[in-house]
């Protein structure tokens, strides 16, 4: 018989090995992230003081867009080749398998963006105090982006040209994370404590972790019949 943990880790392992065979695709969101941030000094001002003022917001917005860009693929590929149906016909609880897919997806899209962000902080002259809350905040924030985004990705899985619609559906839901995330960095830069804001961000990701897998599993059951 299949086991719960076997199925859970099996899904993660398989999604990771698929991602490793398309390594080029892995880099795309990162380059997107980099290019968007490069546009900021070009379009506004290369002056370090002005850049530093915009840095937290710009990095967060580009991180949001980069993860959003990759969200499309969370279920779509599996739907197209039919393996999503096989996943859904597993006797194991679907929400758990969906969670496994979200984790694998975050590892290959969210985590690289997080790891890349200090470089962009440097490029945008983010003051030193801002780096720790930026990294920590992005870890929690990108997790929420993937978790809530999974619901939207599941709903639009069978739709052609679902990606613009997907952004439309999930971006309003990202508002609180963006607010908390940027203000944590801003507070650190201004020399204030950011523990409280970070706690709210942590609460938001814990809450998404509780709710999103179930909602996404339900959404998949609806979405595949597009």
């Amino acid at each position: 018989m299949t086991t719960l943990s076997g199925a859970f880790f099996g899904v993660i392992r398989r999604d990771l090995s698929i991602a490793m065979r398309h390594r080029g695709d892995l880099l795309n969101p990162l380059f997107f992230f980099l290019i968007v941030v490069t546009l900021v000094p070009l379009s506004i001002s290369p002056e370090p003081a002005r850049l530093a003022a915009m840095a937290p917001g710009m990095i967060w917005i580009s991180a949001l867009l980069a993860t959003l860009l990759a969200l499309d693929n969370l279920f779509q590929d599996d739907f197209t080749d039919g393996s999503l149906v096989q996943l859904m016909l597993s006797p194991q609880p679907l929400w758990l398998l969906v969670l496994a897919k979200i984790i694998a997806h975050w590892l290959v899209t969210g985590l690289p963006v997080v790891l890349f962000s200090p470089l962009l902080g440097l490029m945008l002259s983010l003051p030193e105090e801002g780096f720790a809350p930026l990294l920590l905040g992005l870890v929690l924030g990108t997790a929420v982006f993937s978790l809530l985004g999974a619901v939207g990705a599941a709903l639009t899985v069978a739709l052609h040209k679902g990606s613009v619609l997907l952004s439309l559906l999930v971006m309003p839901l990202y508002v609180p994370v963006l607010i908390f995330g940027t203000s944590a960095v801003q507070r650190a830069v201004d020399g204030m404590s950011y523990g409280g804001v970070m706690a709210m961000l942590a609460a938001a990701s814990a809450f998404s972790l509780l709710v999103a897998p179930f909602a996404a599993a339900g959404a998949l059951k609806v979405g595949i019949n597009g």
Binding site: M1, T2, G6, V11, S17, D81, G82, S83, Q86
Partner: peptide, 24 residues
């Protein structure tokens, strides 16, 4: 289904092993 349900970037063995973790 009429779609084979196989990941094209994986080998047949890997595809079946993955499926065997999900289904009996």
């Amino acid at each position: 289904g009429h779609k084979p349900g196989l990941k094209l970037s994986l080998t047949p063995r890997e595809n079946l092993q993955w499926l065997a973790q999900l289904q009996p």
